[in-house]
Amino acid sequence: ENVVSAPMPGKVLRVLVRVGDRVRVGQGLLVLEAMKMENEIPSPRDGVVKRILVKEGEIVDTGQPKIELG
């Protein structure tokens, strides 16, 4: 899985990584606000952040790609 998608609709509060960052499985990639709760979205695997496809403040839909890992 190279693309991390939104598990639920919500607002991107914070992006916790930058392009080029090495990430580990379970590491937080971003914080999504859904139903007035903050949810940290974890990396599904070890890898390197290739692209960030969302911006802080953006509203995302379920299944929308957010971060691409290499």
Rank of each mutant, 00 (worst) to 15 (best):
E1M: 13
N2P: 07
N2R: 10
N2H: 14
V4F: 06
V4L: 08
V4R: 03
A6S: 13
A6I: 09
P7N: 12
P7H: 11
M8N: 07
M8C: 12
M8K: 06
P9H: 11
P9Q: 10
P9C: 10
G10T: 04
K11W: 08
V12H: 00
V12I: 13
L13S: 05
L13I: 12
L13P: 00
R14L: 06
R14I: 06
V15T: 03
L16G: 00
V17R: 00
V17P: 00
V17I: 07
G20K: 05
G20E: 03
G20Y: 06
G20R: 05
D21P: 01
D21W: 09
D21E: 13
D21T: 07
R22L: 12
R22W: 14
R22T: 12
R22N: 11
R22C: 14
V25S: 10
V25R: 14
V25T: 12
V25E: 12
V25Q: 13
G26A: 05
Q27F: 05
G28M: 12
L29I: 07
L29F: 02
L29Q: 00
V31I: 13
V31M: 05
L32Y: 09
L32T: 01
L32M: 11
L32E: 00
A34M: 11
A34H: 14
M35N: 15
M35G: 13
K36Y: 12
K36T: 11
M37W: 08
M37I: 12
M37K: 12
E38G: 05
N39Q: 14
N39T: 14
N39Y: 15
N39R: 14
N39D: 05
N39W: 15
N39V: 15
E40F: 12
E40Q: 10
I41G: 02
I41K: 00
P42E: 08
P42S: 11
S43C: 10
P44T: 07
P44G: 04
V49G: 01
V49C: 05
K50W: 10
R51N: 09
R51W: 06
I52G: 02
L53G: 03
V54N: 01
V54R: 03
K55E: 10
K55H: 12
E58N: 05
E58T: 07
I59Y: 15
I59R: 10
D61K: 15
D61E: 14
T62H: 09
T62L: 12
G63P: 03
G63Q: 06
P65C: 08
K66W: 15
K66S: 15
I67L: 09
E68V: 15
E68C: 14
E68W: 13
E68T: 11
L69I: 13
L69N: 01
L69S: 01
G70D: 14
G70K: 12
